[in-house]
């Protein structure tokens, strides 16, 4: 420590007792409680956050990238589950049994067949779809992407769409319809939907476990990053406590730092998911035209918002854990 020359003092000055005894009656300035605005605090805190990130850029990178990995995986996972969900809902939503008639079914028998269908319990109504109508529907659904003009004859059978009053009755009705003469095969979306739902369930459970682990590790990494920041600034925190800073005042800059890291990481992940989905959906539509894929606008706004919120939450929570650990110590 340097001691600059201090001319006003003689070097070998004899010590004198400093000025007299204490006076009573303290000169005290009444403490005014004109509370500063939230903006003032925010400015103070943001300044601290920027200083910290500048002082420790590599640690911030570590936090940001782990948050990004977490939210990226979550993003893709959510997109997958949302599509599986909508697909199975669409299929399950068709509460009808389709009876495909055998090739020797004559259209004149349709009336009689309708009557025998209506006698089955739970059947609400039927609709005859001739093989020509079915062919036309298929052509419409495929649009111009696949042409059916090369077919020499219509391979589709005549069919009855049978509405039932309750999804649970689908099994029973289908079974009874299958036993009627003239019926080639019976189909109801429920079967596919059930398989799809089972797949969806598996994806969800596996995804939740993976996400849980990822969440925990992200939290750990973020809280460790902030812990290093806390450690680097422990002297400052001690001084803050010494001069009477409230715990929340000490906490906020660290929490904001965590939120900033989470926000950046999650925003990058959300951008990647967003761009990827917008690129992939048109391709999928071209390749598998009849697959009902959710339009980007149906998923992405909520997803992006969710990912960014999650990133911020992970950052805040990680910070809170390490700062609290230090403050309570």
């Amino acid at each position: 420590m340097s001691h600059p020359p201090r001319p006003e003092k003689s070097p070998g000055r004899t010590p004198e007792p400093p000025e007299a005894s204490p006076k009573t009656g303290q000169e005290r300035i009444p403490r005014r409680r004109r509370g500063p605005s939230g903006g003032y605090y925010l400015e103070c805190f943001l300044r601290e956050v920027l200083i910290n990130i500048r002082r420790n850029p590599l640690m911030s990178v570590a936090s940001i990238s782990t948050v990004m990995v977490l939210t990226l995986i979550l993003g893709f996972f959510v997109v997958l589950v949302a599509n599986l969900d909508s697909l199975s809902r669409e299929l399950a939503g068709e509460m009808q049994v389709k009876a495909y008639m055998s090739a020797d079914f004559q259209r004149e028998e349709a009336g009689a067949f309708h009557a025998s269908l209506m006698k089955i319990e739970h059947v609400e109504g039927t609709h005859f779809v001739s093989k020509d109508t079915a062919f036309k529907r298929l052509r419409e659904r495929l649009g111009s992407r696949i042409t059916l003009d090369d077919l020499s004859h219509n391979p589709l059978p005549d069919a009855f769409e049978i509405r039932v009053d309750h999804p649970k009755a689908l099994d029973v009705v289908a079974e009874k319809v299958a036993r009627l003469p003239g019926v080639g095969s019976v189909d109801y979306g429920r079967d596919v939907a059930r398989k799809l739902m089972a797949l969806n369930q598996v994806v969800r459970v596996v995804g939740m476990v993976i996400l849980g682990l990822l969440f925990a590790s992200t939290l750990l990494i973020v809280s460790n990053t902030i812990r290093l920041t806390v450690f680097a600034r422990r002297k400052e925190i001690d001084i803050m406590q010494l001069v009477g800073a409230a715990d929340w005042f000490i906490r906020w800059p660290f929490i904001l730092e965590g939120v900033a890291q989470g926000l950046v990481g999650a925003a990058m992940a959300a951008t990647v998911v967003d761009v990827a989905y917008r690129l992939v959906v048109p391709q999928l539509h071209k390749t598998v035209p009849f697959l009902p894929i959710l339009a980007p606008g149906e998923v992405l706004p909520f997803l992006n918002l969710g990912l960014v919120s999650l990133g911020c939450a992970v950052g805040a929570l990680g910070s809170l854990i390490s700062v609290n650990r230090h403050l309570k110590a």
């Binding site: 000025e19 303290q26 000169e27 005290r28």
Partner: peptide, 19 residues
């Protein structure tokens, strides 16, 4: 150092004198 120490004592006395 002793000089600075006396300075500090002077100041502490002054603070005390204020109550």
């Amino acid at each position: 150092d002793p000089d600075s120490s006396w300075d500090i004592m002077q100041i502490l006395s002054k603070v005390n004198a204020r109550g």
